[in-house]
Amino acid sequence: MADEHRVPIRSEADVLTARHRGRELGALLGLSSTDLILVATAISELARNILQYAGKGEVTLRVVNRGRHRGLEIVASDDGPGIPDVARALEDGYSSSGGLGLGLPGARRLLDEFEIHSEPGKGTVVRGTKWAPDVAD
């Protein structure tokens, strides 16, 4: 199992690829079937954001360790216009209305850890992690 899986996001077919890769890695880590769907859905939201607001970018999937715990780290990055007000973008009002729907607050709710770095003109990096259950059977 490679350390890092980079999926370039240039078209919606790539969104599906990224989702699929996330599911594969998640399954290897022992994520529950529910968690696998959460991961795939989060990747879908983040990858679509890239397409919609930056045109292209990249999703990187990595297995991470913290002491005894293993997790799947998802990094969605692009060189797009950036988000002027990150705090506001993470507010709930933007999510399910179907309008501006950045999908960020939603993606955050699907993952265990979540952080976002973005500045206008400097692109956006979203990093989230889903931790696997403590002990493997």
């Binding site: 360790n65 005894r68 493997a136 059977d137």
Partner: peptide, 8 residues
Amino acid sequence: MERARPLA
């Protein structure tokens, strides 16, 4: 039963 390994 396979024992659990500390991964780090």
